[in-house]
Computed example of a mutant assay.
Amino acid sequence: MAARVDHLVTSGQFSLDGGSWDVDNNVWIVGDDREAVVIDAAHDADAIAEAVGERKLRAIVCTHGHNDHIDAAPALADRTGAPILLHPDDLPLWRQTHPDRSPDGELHEGQAIAVAGAVLTVLHTPGHAPGAVCLHCPDLDTVFSGDTLFQGGPGATGRSFSHFPTIIESIRERLLTLPPETVVRTGHGDSTTVGAEAPHLQEWVDRGH
């Protein structure tokens, strides 16, 4: 049975540097009718668990450690037994939200996560956060970009632990080198493609987005 991508939108708050903002997050579920991986367990463990259903949850993958992408991860892990995976460079962010619960495993550059016959390859793409990662799945012609790349530009870099030149380098070297037809499934908002975003890199640099 071929792997597919299921999509859920959950709502909550993003909090950092003393401020909080209402946000809608994309939760991506990759798998088939038997097993799945969740990318970014945001806000609502019950809704995510319902979307996973009776499938075996193999992993809860965190694209980065901002609270709005990880706040429901421990509850979902407790319900399903799935391990939480995070790049170690984002542990300081993780601990702001979950000081008493560590992730179960690490993500690292080139790591392969297999589910339902598909393979997700970890791309370390720092900038929005030090341990930000994207997950490239050639089998599904897609990359899950977290908050590194959106429709219309890079993720925000105006807060702690972020750096604009670094995110531009990550996008240029890790994402825009993917096939142009690759669908970019983002952490918030609408999906796009590598081909649609690639021509605008210099514009983003010029305006220091």
Rank of each mutant, 00 (worst) to 15 (best):
Arg55Val: 14
Ala45Arg: 02
Leu76Cys: 07
Pro126Gly: 11
Ala198Lys: 14
Pro83Ile: 04
Cys62Val: 01
Leu201Cys: 12
Ala129Pro: 01
Thr142His: 04
Pro83Thr: 08
Pro199Arg: 06
Ala36Thr: 05
Leu175Cys: 04
Gly189Ser: 15
Gly189Val: 12
Asp46Arg: 15
Pro103His: 09
Val205Thr: 12
Leu120Met: 14
Leu107Asn: 00
Glu197Ile: 02
Ala2Glu: 11
Arg34Gln: 09
Ala112Leu: 09
Gly152Arg: 12
Pro180Tyr: 03
Arg174Phe: 01
Gly131Glu: 01
Leu8Ala: 03
Leu91His: 13
Pro165Leu: 10
His188Val: 13
Leu76His: 01
Thr166Gly: 12
Ala75Val: 01
Pro88Val: 02
Ala47Glu: 07
His128Phe: 08
Ala36Leu: 14
Glu181Leu: 07
Thr182Cys: 13
Ala129Leu: 04
Asn67His: 14
Gly53Tyr: 07
Cys137His: 02
Ala59His: 11
Gln96Ile: 07
Val183Ile: 15
Ala75Met: 12
Gly195Gln: 05
Val119Gln: 13
Glu54Leu: 11
Cys62Pro: 00
Trp28Asp: 10
His69Ala: 04
Ser162Arg: 05
Asp68Met: 11
Ile113Val: 10
Ser11Arg: 08
Asp44Pro: 09
Leu135Met: 10
Gln111Gly: 09
Gly195Val: 06
Asp147Phe: 00
Asp100Cys: 03
Leu8Glu: 04
Asp104Cys: 03
Asp90Asn: 12
Val122Ser: 01
Gly12Lys: 08
Gly31Pro: 02
Val205Phe: 03
Leu120His: 11
Ser11Asp: 06
Pro88Tyr: 00
Val38Tyr: 06
Asp24Ser: 14
Ala82Phe: 08
Val30Met: 02
Glu109Gln: 15
His69Pro: 12
His200Cys: 04
Glu54Tyr: 05
Ala198Asn: 02
Thr182Gly: 14
Thr186Val: 15
Asp40Lys: 09
Arg34Asp: 15
His209Thr: 15
Gly127Phe: 01
Glu35Cys: 08
Phe150Met: 12
Gly208Ser: 14
Thr186Cys: 14
Gly19Cys: 09
Gln96Lys: 14
Ile48His: 10
Val37Asn: 01
Ala73Tyr: 13
Thr148Arg: 00
Pro126Met: 12
His124Lys: 13
Ala45Met: 10
Gly117Arg: 13
Leu178Ser: 01
Ala196Thr: 11
Gly53Cys: 05
Glu35Lys: 05
Val184Ile: 15
Ala72Thr: 02
Leu93His: 04
Cys62Asp: 01
Arg172Cys: 08
Pro165Gln: 09
Ser11Met: 09
Phe164Asn: 03
